Simulated assay, not measured.
Amino acid sequence: MAALQRRLVDFAAARDWQPYHTPKNLAAALSVEASELLEIFQWLTPEQAERVMDDPGSAHRVRDEVADVLAYLLQFCAALGVDPLTALAAKIDRNELRFPALRRDGGVAGGAETGDRHSSE
């Protein structure tokens, strides 16, 4: 990940794009690319969306847009000094606390019970 991020930074530097790669501009570009990814799925049914990678043309478009989203995210993180993997791990940690996993019987998976609101007893 770090090597790809460095490659993107070097690519932009070789073209003197740094003045344009501000956090605001990179966030906007990231949003545009995410929207282009969404556009591929816009009018598909859920079933069609699940099969989008079966068609070589649409699969190519999906891969290109995923690459664009990731490229802008990595450039955004480089501009602000954010380690994306560390940020993701911290967010998952917080979400695990905020949203404990529930078992099918309504109890908390791997933890203490939170109450009997789903109990039939």
Rank of each mutant, 00 (worst) to 15 (best):
D116C: 12
S35E: 14
F76M: 05
S120Y: 05
L97N: 12
R51Q: 02
M1Y: 07
P84D: 02
R117Y: 09
E50R: 10
G107N: 03
A101N: 02
R94D: 12
L73W: 06
D64I: 06
S35R: 09
Y72R: 01
W17E: 01
L102C: 02
E96L: 07
A3C: 15
P56D: 05
P100G: 14
F11A: 03
A89I: 04
K24Q: 15
K91C: 08
Q48N: 05
P23C: 06
S120D: 07
G57T: 10
T114S: 13
L37F: 06
A89T: 14
P100M: 12
A67W: 06
D16R: 15
E113H: 14
H60C: 12
R61T: 07
D64M: 01
R63V: 07
T86D: 06
C77S: 15
P19K: 09
Q42H: 15
T114K: 05
P19A: 11
R63H: 03
F11V: 09
A89G: 09
R117W: 09
P19D: 11
G107V: 03
G111W: 04
L80Q: 07
H21I: 02
D93V: 06
A71W: 12
D54K: 03
R6F: 15
A34K: 00
A29M: 13
P23G: 08
V32W: 09
G110E: 07
E47I: 10
G110N: 10
A59N: 09
Q18T: 09
L44K: 04
T114M: 01
V9D: 08
F76P: 08
A79K: 01
T22D: 04
A2N: 14
R94W: 06
Q18W: 00
A89H: 14
E39P: 04
R6G: 12
E39H: 04
E121P: 11
V66D: 11
F76D: 01
L70P: 08
Y72W: 05
P56K: 04
E121S: 11
G57C: 14
K91A: 10
A3F: 15
V32P: 12
D68V: 10
R15M: 05
A89C: 08
G107L: 12
A27D: 00
P84M: 08
N95L: 13
R6S: 15
H60G: 07
E47M: 10
Q42G: 00
R103P: 10
R51A: 03
A14W: 00
Y72P: 00
Q18E: 00
G81P: 01
I40H: 02
A27Y: 10
R94Q: 15
E39L: 07
N25W: 02
Q48V: 09
Y72L: 14
A34D: 05
L8G: 03
P19Q: 14
I92V: 15
K24H: 15
E96M: 12
R103Q: 10
G111K: 06
M1W: 09
H118P: 04
D116Y: 09
W17L: 05
I92R: 12
A12T: 02
S58H: 06
H60P: 04
G57Y: 00
A67H: 09
